[in-house]
Each structure stands twice: as C-alpha cells, then as structure tokens.
Design a protein around this nucleic acid. Structure first.
Ligand SMILES: [Mn+2]
Ligand SMILES: [Mn+2]
Ligand SMILES: [Mn+2]
Ligand SMILES: [Mn+2]
Lengths: 233, 233
DNA sequence: TTTAATTGTTAGGCTAGTCTAACTTTATTA
DNA sequence: TAATAAAGTTAGACTAGCCTAACAATTAAA
C-alpha cells in the first residue's frame, strides 16, 4: 500500500513526464520544486521509490516512472479527476473549488469505490477543467491540443481545457466569461507586448500572454481533419 | 487543524463517553484497547490533547472531552455517518461494506463539502446501521432504545439499529434476513442457554445472545407512549 | 493495614518524512 | 581544459506516532 506522500510523488512524476511536454524523465530539483520540498528530501524518497520498483533511477541520473509506477500515478490522477467531477456535477461546487478538495479525496484507496463513483457519474471522459480521466487500467487518451497563445491571428478555435488549475486563475477565467467548449476567434495579436484580442459569444476582449498560455484549444482546421484524435471532444 | 490520529482519539472518546452507557469519562487502558494501541501511547497523546484544550485530564486521572473536543469528535462521527449514507444510497454498497470505507472518508475536513453532501442526501436522520447523524453544530438526538436481549417473552418491538458494525455481524444479520424497521416478536426465551426465538416477516427463528445483544430495538409500548422521543423513528 | 493486582507514566528507541549545512558530481562557459 | 556554476547527495537533526521495558501510583483483596 502506498502512503499519501508516495502517491503525491508518483502523481507529480506523471504530471512532469507524461502530461507535460512529453519529457519522459525529470531531475531531482524539478521534482522537488513541483512538490514544494527540498532536493535533499527528494533524493532520499526517490531511493525508496526505486526499491519499490516504482521509478528508474541511478545516483546523479534522471528519474523516470516504471510501468508499475506509471499505473499507480495514473490511478491517483483518475481518482483526483473523478472526485472533481463528482463535486462539480453532483454537489454544485465551482471548478475553482474542486481541485483543492480533490487533493485529499484522491488518496482514498478503494478501487471498488472509485469504479462505482465512475459508474455513478456515467463514465465521464473529462473533468471540470477539460482534462481527460484515465480509465480503470490507467490508460488515458491525451487529445491533441495547443495553447491559445499558439493560435494565429484570424484563426478560429475551440476551448477544451485550462492549464493552470489554481483558484485565482479559474476565477479570472470566470470573470472574463470564457468557458470550456466556447468557440474563440483570434482577432488581433500585438507582437510587442503579447496582448491578444479574442472574440467569443459575441464579446470582444483583450487578454494577456499569461492568460492565453493557460487556455488549451483545438484549432478549427484540426477539428475538420480526419486523422486528428481531438475529434472525440 | 487536527491530524487523522487526533481525530480518531476524539471519535473514540465520543463513542466511549457519549454514546456508550452514558459514562462521561474513561481510563487510559480502555481508550488504548479501543484504539488498538498501547497504554503508553495514549498517555502521551492525551497530554497533547489536553494542551490543545480538547480533553480534561490530570495525571493518573480519568479522561473526558471538553466542549471543544466533544464538538470536534462529533464532527468526525457526522462525516463518517454521512459518507456511509452516501455509499449506501448512491453508490449501492451494502451496509456491511460502508463502515470500512467511511473510516478513511471521515477524515476529509472541508465543512462545506460535508454540508453539501448532507444536502445532496436530503438531510438524512440515520445512517445505514440506524445510528443518528449529528447535525452541523455537533448536536445529536440519541433516541431511546434497548437491545433485543432486554425485550421480554411475548413482547413486540421494532428494530432500529445494530450495535456491532463489523462486516461479519452485518453479513450474519443479512443471512438471517432481519432489517432495520422490521417488527419483531419475542416468541420464547430459554433462560438456561440464552437462546431467543423471534418472529418477523412471517418467519420464526432461534438466535443467540450474541445476536440479540447487538440488535437495538424500541418496544411496542414505548412506541405508543407520547413522552418518548423514539417517535421520530 | 499490609500485600497484591491493576492501572498509568516515563525513558529510550523506531520509522516516515521533512529540514539545513556541508560536500560531491556533472554541466557550462571562459 | 580549467574554473565556475548548477545539480545532486549525505549527515545529522527534528516531529508525530508508535513501541517495549521498567517503574510508580492507585485500587482491591487478604
Ligand atoms: Mn485538479
Ligand atoms: Mn482537474
Ligand atoms: Mn461506521
Ligand atoms: Mn454506521
């Protein structure tokens, strides 16, 4: 049985080596800053995770997940995202509130519980932030997507997820009024100060790079292409 | 913020000093055996709980809950019983399964979450085992009840709760077919070996003292009396 | 009322997970 | 390639929560 701490290490490793940028390994310092602990602490812990066959690691080398570690980490992500969906859909929490609560709920271990919850929610594909929910085997469809920053002037796209899950950012998105599945047009982009003018739902607004960097979209032409997996959205 | 361990101590103290037999204080050994730790461990921990103003305690004396400790402990019980109700009513777990899962879920702290859950469940009064659920202020109605062992030959009563919450006992009750709210008649009692013959739902069966000791009932005459709070059942 | 049994405390030690401070290895850059 | 910077490790210390073993206080029995 894995401890809360071990699970948090594995979840962070999934974030860093599976979801983000497709790196497959990560250094001690990066993992330490993600978990908000000191590198010395990670050094120690990673040795223990290696003994449990959850990570690949050699002294002074990079850290990567074994298959066992990947599945264990993915289960934490599955639980996290299913609980978020429950809180959002059934208990009427906002998408800005659910992440923090799910940080605790994700460590409830029962497989039966989480599979029943999945069923109760009618097998949702995505959580309230637009992130895909891994299945009971730890498999996940990572849809193709880019950030709103990468969409060119004049192009149309659809919001599919948010990158930053913090309360502050999500409340900011709420204030602007943008929602997942909204269609957005990039009306203008100022290359000097990286401000973008977007249009959606009949409104037009100027947003910062910090904003567009944290909005995931699929572009219109990609939505039409047959060989793109973002069709499932 | 209270740790899991501290919460388990407070919950155990509520069990021992509020729910059970109306003792208002308890010794170190009793608390230790309830929590399945050694007396030395309790001795230490109780000192810490006293510093946090959660218990009254003097060296070599008895332990009792302060008002602050009572409310904190009652909140753990509230969370436990609400989660049990959720698992039973919404996720179709059996009453024999829910207790173990609730042992973990009861430590999720968010007050907002538990109050929303309460609302989602439409403010249940009793959990799947017939135990009353404390309200958001930590108040609880402890209905008058006795065990089936205390019901005399020829008397009629209604099952309101089970005392033993273990999987084994609950599955045994399932096998016998008895349910909460069933009307039971004590047909015969053998005083020598304490076997009781009961009738319910048209069936007649002989049960042991261990069984009758763990079934809570209200007797028929009490159900008729106006000054008895078990009317709310 | 003295002895014995029960009950509770203290001292010292263990593990998980964290830290700081000092040190070592690897990578970068002049 | 040698100096410097960055990244990573080790040693020693701390806390929470647990243990055992030895001891002290209280209660019950003789
Ligand atoms: Mn989240
Ligand atoms: Mn999410
Ligand atoms: Mn229970
Ligand atoms: Mn219960």
């Amino acid at each position: 049985m894995l401890s809360f701490t071990e699970e948090n290490y594995l979840k962070a490793l999934v974030q860093l080596t599976v979801f983000e940028e497709s790196y497959t390994e990560v250094g001690v310092n990066k993992l330490a800053s993600t978990l908000e602990v000191k590198p010395a602490t990670v050094s120690d812990m990673v040795r223990k995770l290696k003994e449990k066959l959850l990570v690949n690691y050699e002294k002074y080398g990079k850290i990567s997940l074994t298959e066992k570690g990947r599945v264990a980490g993915m289960m934490v992500v599955r639980r996290h995202r299913l609980w978020e969906t429950f809180l959002y859909k059934k208990l009427d929490f906002t998408w800005a509130e659910v992440h923090e609560l799910a940080e605790d709920l994700e460590h409830i271990h029962s497989k039966k519980l989480i599979d029943r919850l999945d069923q109760f929610l009618e097998f949702p594909e995505f959580d309230p932030h637009g992130d895909a929910i891994p299945n009971a085997d730890g498999e996940i469809i990572i849809p193709f997507r880019k950030t709103l920053s990468e969409v060119g002037k004049g192009e149309k796209c659809k919001v599919v997820a948010v990158k930053d899950n913090s309360t502050d950012f999500l409340q900011h998105v709420d204030k602007i009024g943008l929602k997942i599945r909204d269609d957005v047009t990039v009306i203008d982009r100022d290359d000097f100060d990286s401000l973008t003018t977007i249009g959606f739902n009949g409104v037009q607004i100027v947003v910062s790079l910090k904003f567009t960097d944290n909005i995931f979209v699929v572009c219109a032409q990609c939505l039409k292409a047959k060989d793109c997996n973002c069709h499932s959205l």
